[in-house]
């Protein structure tokens, strides 16, 4: 049988095997996050004050590696691009949600993924963060069910599967790949410059 990725959506894995594989990949992901220094809030909060470039460095390395491997997989015929899951873009919900997410992240020094790594390495603040996160989710689900206005807002401005290719109105994947590289390294360069400026101000 000729294997095509992603394995589950392409019909090569049953849901049980898929879930076991997800658990294994999740453990590996957590281990890498921990080794990258993401299991302590002291490394994440300084990002927002331009005092550390650890997070953007790791993120850019992860994004560019993944983008490259997906791009190579598609152009060499091993990945079926049509079967890759792409969530829909809800503009207003994403903007408001992103703002709340950012405020929560700078206040606590955790994001949901790193907090799980923090709990695994017995960080008390990560446990409180995750409890707060679950409480917030519970409240949101309740409000979402109760208020029509919130449902309308959350589902408004739905752009569907809005990709870089759709933005540039071209099916050529090279555009998306190069744009991803440019944006990622541009963000990293911006963060490095901002850190240098912040360090200089700190010295004065």
């Amino acid at each position: 049988m000729d294997v095509v990725f992603p394995l589950y959506t392409s019909g090569f894995l049953d849901s049980t095997t898929n879930l076991w594989l997800a658990l294994l990949i999740g453990i590996m992901f957590g281990f890498i996050l921990e080794r990258a220094g993401f299991s302590t809030s002291a490394h994440i909060a300084p990002l927002f004050y331009f005092r550390s470039t650890l997070v953007p460095k790791v993120m850019v390395a992860a994004i560019t590696t993944t983008a490259t491997l997906i791009f190579l997989g598609v152009v060499f015929g091993y990945i079926d691009f049509n079967n890759i899951f792409i969530p829909s873009t809800y503009v207003w919900a994403y903007l408001v949600g992103g703002l709340i997410f950012g405020v929560g992240m700078v206040m606590s020094g955790w994001c949901p993924g790193t907090a799980v790594t923090g709990v695994a390495t017995a960080k008390i603040d990560a446990i409180f963060f995750l409890l707060g996160l679950m409480f917030g989710m519970f409240i949101y689900f309740y409000l979402y069910d109760a208020y029509e206005a919130l449902r309308e807002f959350a589902n408004s401005a739905n752009l569907g599967k809005f990709t870089i290719n759709k933005l540039f109105n071209t099916p050529d994947l090279r555009v998306a790949y190069i744009a991803t590289l440019v944006m990622s390294f541009g963000l990293l360069a911006f963060m490095i410059v901002m850190k240098k400026i912040a360090d200089k101000k700190g010295d004065e």
């Binding site: 590696t65 490259t68 190579l72 598609v74 152009v75 060499f76 994947l173 090279r174 590289l181």
Partner: peptide, 17 residues
């Protein structure tokens, strides 16, 4: 890894995709 990706982007046109 990125060099391999850029090389592929330069050499693989849309028809090949």
């Amino acid at each position: 890894i990125i060099s391999a990706g850029v090389l592929a982007a330069v050499s693989v046109d849309y028809e090949t995709q």
